[in-house]
């Protein structure tokens, strides 16, 4: 049967992998190509690269990094950050990305998701949703854009359903409240979205221990778990994480 996936996330800025806390306070974690190769050797199921500055100066650099990784690492690569038009999707796919993650633009111009899915296939269109718990709304979690700086007034669960109806083949759900905190994924949020849609969802934001990865699958109903800090600084290897999850009754590729 299908295995659940572990996806290390490489946040890239100015050609380096960095990691922040609650989307801020960036800390250097190393060279993207070397880190990608290391995770591939450890058995990562996929890799995600997020261009977190997403300025036009860095775009060329990111394409170059993706080309270099794609020539050496033969597992699926997802790339996101600053994807604004269908042409950006084409450029990233041509550089060697297998999937492209769309976040802010999906909110500003939902038709772009539809056009990209129609042109390149749903299998390569990931919609990334940054969600935060809110008190003053008729729903529990609100969608934020622009790297978590702008509230949208959108219900994250309804938004997830809408994106799938437009052709998203996968959803990457990041809990802004949990990102970088290492207190675990937002399992109620992920469970609500997982139950609402048929496509796979990736849990992101908050993984701090191997038990959190297990909970993300079992409690959150995620099909894949994304993590950065626990792998970047050598706390755990991907292999250790997979063995722990397998021992806890989750089917993994070992």
């Amino acid at each position: 049967m299908l295995a659940k996936r572990i996806i290390p996330c490489l946040d890239v800025t100015a050609g380096r992998v960095v990691k922040g806390i609650n989307f801020l306070e960036l800390r250097d974690a190393g060279d993207p190509v070397e880190i990608a190769k290391r995770y591939d050797e450890q058995g990562a199921d996929e890799l995600t690269f997020l261009d977190i500055t997403a300025s036009s100066d860095n775009r060329g650099l990111l394409l170059h990094i993706i080309e270099e990784v794609a020539a050496q690492v033969f597992i699926p690569l997802t790339v996101g950050g600053g994807v604004r038009e269908v042409e950006d999707v084409r450029r990233l796919l041509n550089a060697g990305a297998d999937k492209v993650s769309i976040n802010t633009t999906a909110v500003l111009n939902p038709k772009m998701v539809q056009d990209a899915a129609a042109r390149f296939g749903s299998q390569c269109i990931v919609v990334a949703i940054d969600a935060k718990k809110v008190e003053n709304q008729p729903f529990e979690w609100e969608v934020f854009t622009h790297g978590g700086r702008k509230a949208t007034g959108l219900d994250a669960v309804k938004w997830a359903e809408h994106m799938v109806s437009l052709g998203a083949g996968e959803l990457l759900i990041t809990s802004m409240d949990r990102d970088g905190t290492k207190i675990g994924f937002n399992n109620p949020l992920n469970r609500a979205i997982s139950n609402a849609v048929d496509v796979p969802i990736i849990a992101s934001g908050g993984a701090g221990s191997l038990q959190h990865l297990v909970d993300g699958i079992k409690l959150g109903g995620a099909d894949a778990v994304l993590a950065a800090s626990i792998f970047h600084y050598g706390e755990y290897t991907i292999q250790e994480a997979k063995e722990f999850m397998q021992k806890n009754g989750i089917e993994m590729r070992l």
């Binding site: 049967m1 295995a3 659940k4 996936r5 199921d45 299998q123 083949g169 109903g221 894949a224």
Partner: peptide, 17 residues
């Protein structure tokens, strides 16, 4: 559904035997 009763997603995405 899988053996735990969890809904199986489509697309079938990931590593399978």
């Amino acid at each position: 559904h899988d053996e735990h009763g969890e809904k199986l997603k489509v697309p079938h995405m990931g590593w399978n035997q």
